[in-house]
Nucleic acid binder design. Structure first.
Lengths: 224, 224
DNA sequence: AAGTTTAAGTAGTATTACTATCATAAACGA
DNA sequence: TCGTTTATGATAGTAATACTACTTAAACTT
């Protein structure tokens, strides 16, 4: 299969769909590179406009502000992860097996997906690890939520927590357990790199394998 | 007992010890109020200087910038929490019992502690819930860590994870489990309030009890 | 070819996050 | 009591940020 795909995202995420124009695609591609390189706080529309050889005002026509752009990128990521989970668990009857596949996909290191040529998934994963919590840790969280912008993340959480409920119908906290696990899946990788005394995971090629191992232990032991 | 106490914090947290002067204490007291009221992003030294009827320059003599001030406040909180855990678990032989006390203290709603008249602990707990992750989610994390500013949090994590190891010496991830639990203890309360579909906890007087119940389930099931 | 929608560039503003300098007043030591 | 640290305050200034408003250019329609 050689077709390129497009994820359907909530139109409230943008003022003008960046997937619909050349400039829009350049904004996404270069925003990922730039945030990955300098971090979200230092990232500005001015710097982005220089790197795509355009202007601040043009970028403001696509996104209300840089926070909304971050929400767009992070939502793209979770929607993509959920798509992969749906794809890989399709036609698998055993709930336990489906849960393991889902946890694996969440925990693992992401490579380039040829279906989406404009998105650098490995860079985007690094952004998720370092910046994703900033999407909701803001005073605007309720407004943003009202517009439905967290649907991607919430839907992913629901997908996995319902597998948990299928396995252990009496378990009281499937949503809390899975949201905790989703957060842990990037927090622990961050700790491994920057605050290693907070985690047994160690920065190396296999952090992501250890990450999977930890998540598996956490989730399976908790619901059993 | 009627003496007031003072927590010993790493001097790198400040340029000049705010606990040593009247102005310093006013800065801490009003910073807590102001961040609680308007959030960390909207909080500025200018606004703080107006609320304490002083000047920006004076505040800059105590803290390098507003991020360092946040690190100071959050460190104060975790150091205080660890002090409480030490106090309450002292002389208790049974590790399982000590673990439950520690989880309870982490999870519970904080009231005013008369030992520290200048600190509004309930407001500070709200700041921890909404802003604490911003202390380390920054490009400066490695520099800040090198100065030892995360010692409070790391020490708390170690204290509890060593109880875990005492109970289950073969468990592979005591640090990861406890850092995950510490993060969950404020994340789940945040979700209950702002993104309730990510958690079974519900905003009400007993969120903190449910929080304890969830943490207990998570930790005890995982290590058993 | 004229008119109209749409995209993109130019220019400007208020605020933020500082830094630097100088004045003054209290506190402290000899 | 005189002189000197030390703490705070007042004032000003700067580069960068996060926008907004206005204007021009291109593209598409009739």
């Amino acid at each position: 299969m050689n077709t390129t795909l497009q994820l359907n995202l909530n139109p409230n995420l943008y003022l003008k769909d960046p997937q619909s124009t050349e400039l829009g695609k350049k904004i996404i591609e270069n925003a990922i590179n730039l945030i990955d390189k300098i971090g979200f706080e230092a990232f500005t529309f001015k710097k982005l406009s220089v790197s795509i050889d355009s202007t601040e005002a043009s970028i403001y026509r696509y996104f209300e502000n840089k926070h909304r752009l971050l929400v767009y990128l992070i939502t793209w990521y979770w929607t993509w992860v959920e798509y992969n989970i749906q794809f890989e668990t399709h036609n698998i009857a055993d709930a336990h097996e489906r849960l393991l596949i889902a946890l694996k996909i969440i925990a693992e290191k992401k490579g380039k997906d040829q279906n989406f040529p404009d998105v650098d998934e490995p860079a985007l994963q690094r952004i998720v690890i370092a910046e994703s919590d900033k999407t909701y840790l803001t005073r605007e969280v309720d407004d943003i939520n009202k517009e439905g912008l967290f649907r991607g993340y919430k839907s992913l959480c629901k997908t996995i927590s319902s597998i948990v409920s299928e396995i252990s119908p009496d378990f009281k906290f499937p949503d809390a357990l899975i949201s905790t696990s989703l957060e842990a899946s990037h927090q622990q990788v961050f700790f491994a790199k920057h605050l290693p005394s907070l985690s047994e995971l160690r920065e190396a090629d296999d952090v992501f394998e250890e990450n999977f191992h930890f998540l598996k232990t956490l989730v399976l032991n908790t619901i059993r």
